[in-house]
């Protein structure tokens, strides 16, 4: 019976957490369509997410594109298919690697920072202070971050696509003796709009997940420094798991036949 009771507690706890997250998400999204809007906050978050994440996403994409080119060259040479390097790098980066790795890097940088900032505001009564100053914390803190996440992560991934493909090109041309113009032509020949669009849609979904998890865990943090630390960890872990899960779902939606 103890085992059943423990199992029941876990299931009830999960259901309650899912319900809380659903209500939080609905509440946050409802403010997207209800003025007043804090456009200054939206702009500030867009800069924080989009501009300040460029180095980490760019470097990730660059080295991933380079390593991918080397791996594909080595692997494809086993059956004399070295010419596929440009194709695989282009499709691999746009469809999968730039969105997923970019999303994970943003989760580590932005999601953690959001959870820590909002969590600290929660445990130091700053969120309560917002309410006493006639300012809805969802409008001021949460919705601007969600809007910025959904719009700026696709921008980061678009930049990551270009940098990753450039990384593959650099390795292929400089190290593997590919012809520069042939490599570029092959890349543009293989890429279709759907490859880029699917990656950008994934990025928007990941941006939403990262900011939602950062805001949700920060908003509900309690218990001082330890609580803020736990909120930060939970934000990154839950965002990472949801990114990997939703990646499969979106891939299935776009490319299943």
């Amino acid at each position: 019976m103890d085992v059943l009771a423990a199992l029941g507690r876990v299931v009830l706890g999960f259901a309650a957490a899912t319900g809380r997250l659903g209500l939080f998400t609905g509440h946050a999204l409802s403010h997207v369509f209800r003025p007043p809007y804090f456009l200054g906050q939206v702009a500030q978050q867009m800069v924080s997410i989009g501009y300040f994440s460029l180095p980490v996403v760019g470097l990730t994409a660059l080295f991933t594109g380079m390593a991918l080119a080397l791996q594909i060259f080595e692997g494809s040479s086993r059956f004399n298919a070295e010419g596929t390097v440009a194709f695989v790098v282009a499709i691999g980066m746009t469809r999968e690697l730039a969105p997923v790795l970019g999303g994970l890097m943003v989760a580590g940088r932005v999601g953690a920072a959001m959870a820590a900032e909002i969590g600290t505001m929660r445990v130091t009564d700053q969120i309560d202070a917002l309410m006493t100053l006639s300012t809805n914390p969802f409008k001021y803190l949460i919705t601007p971050r969600l809007v910025a996440g959904v719009t700026m992560v696709p921008f980061l991934v678009a930049v990551g696509d270009a940098i990753g493909i450039f990384g593959g090109y650099t390795i292929s041309v400089q190290l593997l003796d590919f012809n520069s113009s042939t490599y570029i032509r092959n890349t543009f020949d293989i890429l279709e709009n759907i490859d880029i669009i699917a990656g950008l849609v994934k990025a928007a979904v990941f941006g939403f997940i990262v900011t939602l998890m950062g805001c949700y865990h920060g908003y509900h943090s309690q218990g001082g420094a330890q609580g803020v630390g736990a909120a930060t960890t939970n934000a990154v872990v839950s965002a990472s798991i949801l990114i990997l899960t939703s990646n499969l779902v979106v891939t299935q939606l776009f490319f299943s036949r």
Partner: peptide, 14 residues
């Protein structure tokens, strides 16, 4: 709420 002002224990400044 506009009738209220509040001084928090820890100040709660932003």
């Amino acid at each position: 709420m506009r009738k209220f002002g509040m001084l928090f224990q820890g100040a709660a400044l932003f």
